[in-house]
Computed example of a mutant assay.
Amino acid sequence: MSHPILAAYDLKKSYGRGPNRFDALKGVTLEIFAGESVAIVGKSGSGKSTLMHLLALLDKPSTGTVELGGSDTATLKGKRLNETRNKTFGFVFQQFFLTPGASVLENVVLPLKIAGIGSRSRRVRGHAALDRLELGDKAKSKANALSGGQKQRAVIARALVNDPRIIFADEPTGNLDSATGAIVEDILFGLNREQGITLIIVTHDEDLAARCDRRVYIRDGLVVTEEARVAA
């Protein structure tokens, strides 16, 4: 059997010490395979966002192992860690995290700039990503001039510009109305289905989670159950 594309083994994460110590994760094991869509589901404070940050190599566990393609990521340090994270993952956040006064294109190509890609190549790849999200005509617009749905599509374009193998989406429709949110969901699941991008969604939205291949439920820092999507 092939290695999972991403895996966590007995992950624990604590903050503080002594009587002020808080155990956000208490021993989570989870394997995610290439091309899957997986929802990590839990209420606020359950540990789901902490788990996402550890899986995305944005933070380090107190104990336990995160493996990427079968290799222990603890060996990744400094520049190698940043390069691996930048090339492997795309991020879609509820808060958008767009620079308001910068153009949409400038926002979208930021991962390429961080990766040291030349300006001409950045523009070409940025325009291509915007065209895929039907935002090509907004490339020169300021990010703060976009609607909520357009901002989220710009965020998805930014997530795609480096051709990631894995996209993390943290409450990707939380700031959108239901109709716009449905469009964004369709885009994300289309990328998963048509391009084989592994999709990891962190959410408390049961309807969104139900669209994923698997739902992993977290409570008080532990995985309490996993459910597979029932085929229609």
Rank of each mutant, 00 (worst) to 15 (best):
G78I: 11
E83H: 11
L55D: 01
D59F: 09
G35N: 09
L54D: 05
N82G: 13
G64C: 05
L81Q: 05
E36D: 11
S37K: 02
S44M: 10
T50H: 10
G45K: 00
T65Y: 08
S37L: 05
A34L: 12
F22T: 14
T73P: 02
D23R: 00
R85N: 02
S46W: 00
G27L: 03
T84M: 13
I40M: 01
K48H: 03
R80Y: 09
K43L: 15
L81S: 04
D59V: 07
L25R: 05
G78F: 11
T29K: 04
N82I: 10
E67W: 05
S62P: 06
T50G: 09
V66T: 03
S71C: 11
G78A: 12
G47E: 03
G78C: 11
G69T: 08
G47L: 08
V66E: 00
D23N: 07
L55H: 02
E67C: 15
K77I: 10
L76S: 06
K60V: 12
F22P: 00
T75F: 14
R85M: 03
S37F: 04
E36R: 00
T75H: 14
E36T: 01
N82W: 04
A56K: 00
G64A: 04
G27N: 05
S71Y: 13
T75Q: 15
N82F: 08
T65E: 14
S49L: 08
L68W: 11
D72W: 03
N82D: 15
K26H: 01
